[in-house]
């Protein structure tokens, strides 16, 4: 903060520019969408997409922390979302009727986040012992395991308390009892308490957490461990600890996103969170640019909306989505275009 000139100078100084841009983008998008919502100019289709979009944004920001900043390929982000979603749904189901919706939503997200962070910590212990592609396949395996376990989980709730069961459901429920998670049927009859404002606040929260982390001492340690493990270790950085920190925060953000996502639908099945969802989020992160959170925001919104915008093309939309994906990768990695872009940038400077 050498050239700090008031608050504007602080916000626009090089170190904080990307942070300022992120917050501005989110705030502007929120205000614009709220105006459109209030004046009734937003179609039902898009209104329904707002909350899921914020959920994917939060999950993608978390994943970018893990893949971009910490440099570990994670193919199981959806598994963490599943943990958050189903714990959030349970919290909300148990508290229904006694706690007002807003507080219930906050509690569900916080508990979902904490529980997922704990699960992330447990999974992180074995996962972070591995490296490279082996680490990636193990996160994929964990994602599948979590999804399969939740698919066989039965949670019910009645006046006597919460009941868990595994694989087979054999509860005798008292008066007013109901299933919160019903094995392969998932969570049904959830009260839809998620809303766009909560989603936006969560996105801002995720950005604050991530930016404060990467501009801190710990964040620099994480990046040092990514760039050169041995050199980082030699100057006294605890690799296991820094990697674990990024992994757990990434998982926690995915859990919070999952909790919000789960409370946005009246029914939710665990198979929604299979490896395809993990890969979808990874695509957002890679196309946005590794370690670039503004890129993540833009890429997530565009790629999330793209299939919807192509809806007019009906059956062809996913085909076109696939072609766009391949073309973006081919164009951004084209040697000729790259050298051109580099020379243009040089001229500007």
């Amino acid at each position: 903060m050498e050239n700090k000139k008031g608050i504007l100078g602080y916000l626009l100084n090089n170190r904080h520019r990307s942070r300022t841009i992120s917050y501005t983008m989110v705030a502007a998008a929120y205000i614009l969408l709220e105006i459109l919502l209030k004046t009734g100019n937003l179609s039902n289709l898009f209104t329904g997409l707002l909350v899921p979009a914020t959920c994917y944004l939060v999950a993608a920001i978390g994943l970018n922390l893990n893949v971009g900043v910490s440099g570990e390929l994670n193919l199981g982000q959806a598994g963490f979302m599943a943990v958050g979603a189903f714990s959030g749904v349970c919290v909300s189901g148990v508290l229904a009727g006694t706690v007002p919706p807003v507080l219930r939503l906050i509690l569900a997200i916080i508990i979902g986040m904490l529980l997922t962070a704990f699960v992330g910590f447990l999974i992180g212990i074995p996962v972070l012992k591995l490296q490279g592609d082996y680490l990636a396949i193990v996160t994929l395996a964990f994602g599948q395991i979590v999804m399969n376990l939740i698919m066989n989980l039965y949670v019910a709730f009645d006046s006597t308390g919460i009941k868990f069961s595994f694989v087979e459901s054999k509860f005798t429920l008292g008066e007013g009892g109901k299933y919160l998670i019903n094995g392969p049927m998932g969570a049904t009859g959830t009260e839809r308490i998620a809303n766009f404002t909560a989603g936006t606040i969560l996105v801002i929260f995720a950005l604050v957490v991530v930016y404060n982390l990467i501009y801190s001492r710990s964040g620099r340690a994480i990046m040092a461990a990514r760039d050169n493990r041995i050199a980082a270790e030699s100057i006294g950085i605890n690799i296991a600890k820094t990697k674990m920190m990024a992994f757990v925060i990434s998982a926690a953000l995915a859990g919070a996103a999952g909790a919000l996502y789960g409370l946005n639908y009246s029914t939710m099945v665990a198979s929604k969170f299979d490896y395809n969802t993990s890969i979808l989020i990874l695509v957002y992160v890679v196309l946005g640019g590794l370690g670039n959170f503004n890129g993540t925001l833009i890429a997530t919104v565009i790629l999330f909306l793209l299939p919807q915008l192509l809806r007019g093309l009906q059956d062809y939309r996913m085909l076109i989505y696939a072609v766009v994906l391949i073309l973006i990768m081919l164009i951004t990695n084209n040697e000729f275009l790259r050298t051109k872009a580099a020379s243009l940038r040089k001229k500007k400077a």
């Binding site: 390929l73 696939a322 072609v323 994906l325 391949i326 990768m329």
Partner: peptide, 11 residues
């Protein structure tokens, strides 16, 4: 390798 991975997913 991540770019290639995403391309493979696209394929």
């Amino acid at each position: 390798s991540l770019s290639v991975l995403i391309t493979a997913i696209g394929v």
